[in-house]
Amino acid sequence: MNWEFIWEYLPLYQKAAWLTVRIGLMGITIAILLGFICAMIQYYKVPILKRVVSVYIELSRNTPLLVQLFFIYYGLPKIGIQTNAEICGIAGLAFLGGSYMAEAFRSGLEAVDSIQTESALSLGMSNYQTMAYVVLPQAISVSIPAFMANIIFLMKETSVFSAISLMDLMFTAKDLIGLYYKTTESLFLLVVFYLIILLPISILGSLLERRLRHAGFGS
């Protein structure tokens, strides 16, 4: 193990990690919003939109992120929609993540017994109040394990961004291996930085799940 090489290129990995985290967080945030909207459309069975959402979820979940990125990065400019690598990465992650988040939210919403909704409405609560104060808190607590697993999954999926020339962690590792043939050192730094990014998310997810279970939500 060449520690001098590791210390010399550590700042390069730090810069790549920041890019990975920034794009990952932006893509995941949009994915959460998109997933929530899709789940609500499915829950309320909105005509036409429910079918559109079903098609989107099947298309997104059954195509690789790499193919989606290629379509956005190389395909959209062909029809006059210009973009750059970062926006492409965010859009691809949001497109893929939205479907997974939608399924996580939907499963949580469907886990809430319909008798609770009926009881809330019979007590004079509006549809909005019923959703906001009765259904959503329980649905989100049930969805937390799948929700956190999806976040970790999407952060790991950022490793394919190197295919569209984004200087993320994977691109940096492959670049250094190609230039200096320092495979062990480059991969060591790659693993370390992914652990730094993903371990806190995993720990936070476990703490949230445990706290919600002690509070009386979830199983």
Rank of each mutant, 00 (worst) to 15 (best):
Q129M: 08
T29W: 09
R61P: 07
Q14S: 13
Q42V: 01
P64G: 02
L66E: 03
I164T: 06
E103Q: 13
A146F: 03
S219Q: 14
R22E: 15
L204M: 14
I201D: 11
Y133P: 00
L66F: 06
L123I: 11
V53L: 04
I30L: 15
M167H: 14
L93G: 08
K182E: 15
L179N: 14
L208S: 10
V52G: 09
V134C: 04
A91K: 00
I32K: 05
S122F: 03
A163M: 08
F161V: 04
A31H: 06
L187S: 10
G89W: 01
G205Q: 10
G80T: 05
E185T: 12
Q138L: 02
T172Y: 04
K156L: 02
V67R: 00
A139S: 10
I115K: 14
R213L: 09
A120Y: 03
A17Q: 09
K15S: 15
S122W: 04
E4C: 06
A85P: 03
Q42L: 12
A102T: 08
N62R: 02
M101E: 12
A17C: 13
L69H: 04
A17P: 07
F161Q: 03
V52P: 05
A102P: 01
L187R: 09
E8S: 13
V21S: 09
S143N: 01
L65A: 04
L93H: 08
S186E: 08
I164Y: 01
L59Y: 06
M148V: 15
I41M: 00
R51F: 12
A102D: 08
L207Q: 11
G178A: 13
V160K: 00
M1R: 10
L66G: 06
I201K: 08
I152N: 04
I57N: 02
F95W: 14
G80H: 00
D113Y: 08
F70S: 06
S162A: 07
L179T: 15
N150A: 04
L195P: 04
T158V: 05
E58Q: 08
G205S: 12
V46E: 03
A31N: 05
R213F: 08
I196D: 03
Q82P: 00
R213V: 10
S206M: 12
W3N: 09
A94G: 11
M131Y: 07
L96M: 13
Y128W: 15
G124A: 06
S206V: 11
I81A: 01
S202G: 13
L96K: 13
T63N: 04
I196T: 09
G80A: 03
E209T: 14
P64Y: 00
I140S: 02
T29Q: 08
W7H: 15
L166Q: 12
E58R: 00
P137G: 08
L179F: 14
F5D: 07
D175H: 14
I164F: 01
Y73P: 05
Y56T: 06
I177A: 10
L34S: 13
P200Y: 04
L189G: 12
L195D: 09
L49G: 05
C88H: 03
